[in-house]
């Protein structure tokens, strides 16, 4: 376990890119949104929602992917096993998701208490994603980090293991399979049923359950792929 923590430091030691960029870019996004919405004279009711929050998730997933392509060869060079490196990576991503989830929840509370920063802005309290239970709200914020990060970690591991051709090959295969699936669904007229199934799902399943499940599958897939990867 100590070794996993020592290896986890490889991800966090240069904390500027790990921490400062995601939050910095989100802060800029928030600032820009505040300026825009403050300059609109009379925002129509319900039209004061923004999707700027997505920036922190995207930046984090990019950081997660680059940390594989950059830290993995270094870790291997320092005599760290693939297994230890991967477990340390999982640990960093899970802890980060929980901490960031809590921080976003606090910002959510601030936004609520200040009347949307005085201008009824809904940057953190996005409709549907805004739930009334505190713990659940933290999970709702945290799970998309896990989902995006583990999918991008899996893609990065795939790239390290199989190279550019492997990456594009898998991408091509994915497009082909999805395309055929969509064609089949359209041909059979199954879209209505699928929509019905989606809308019958509980909010918690859609926001937390299913993304967490996919994140777990991606994490296990990354573990399997990295065991035979060479830097």
């Amino acid at each position: 376990m100590t070794r996993i923590l020592d290896v986890a430091r490889m991800h966090t030691i240069a904390w500027v890119s790990q921490l400062a960029w995601p939050w910095g870019i989100m802060a800029i996004s928030l600032g820009v949104n505040l300026l825009i919405f403050a300059s609109i004279d009379e925002a129509a009711p319900g039209k004061n929602t923004t999707g700027g929050l997505v920036s922190i998730y995207i930046v984090c997933s990019i950081v997660a992917a680059t940390s594989i392509s950059q830290v993995f060869p270094f870790a291997l060079g320092m005599g760290v096993t693939r297994r230890t490196f991967y477990l340390a990576t999982v640990l960093v991503n899970v802890v980060q998701a929980v901490v960031y989830g809590v921080l976003l929840y606090l910002l959510n509370l601030i936004e609520g208490a200040t009347g949307g920063f005085g201008i009824q802005l809904r940057f953190f309290r996005i409709p549907y994603v805004d739930v009334d239970n505190g713990l659940l709200q933290i999970a709702v914020y945290a799970v998309p980090f896990l989902f995006l990060n583990f999918v991008s970690v899996f893609v990065a591991v795939w790239y390290v293991r199989f190279g550019m051709n492997g990456l594009f090959g898998a991408g091509a295969a994915l497009i082909l399979v999805t395309g055929l699936l969509v064609a089949l669904i359209t041909w059979q007229g199954w879209f209505g049923d699928i929509w019905q199934w989606l809308s019958s799902q509980h909010q918690v399943s859609l926001l937390v359950g299913w993304p967490a499940l996919i994140a777990a599958v991606a994490a296990l897939g990354g573990m399997a792929a990295i065991r035979r990867a060479n830097a």
């Binding site: 490889m10 030691i13 890119s17 950059q70 830290v71 270094f74 060079g77 320092m78």
Partner: peptide, 25 residues
């Protein structure tokens, strides 16, 4: 294993590498 082709993450400074190595060996 010290090799000529060893790569390091872009954000690392010399002191970071030394501090990590200290814990790993």
């Amino acid at each position: 294993f010290i090799k000529e082709s060893q790569t390091y993450p872009t954000a690392y400074q010399v002191r970071h590498v030394l501090s990590l190595a200290k814990r790993l060996f």
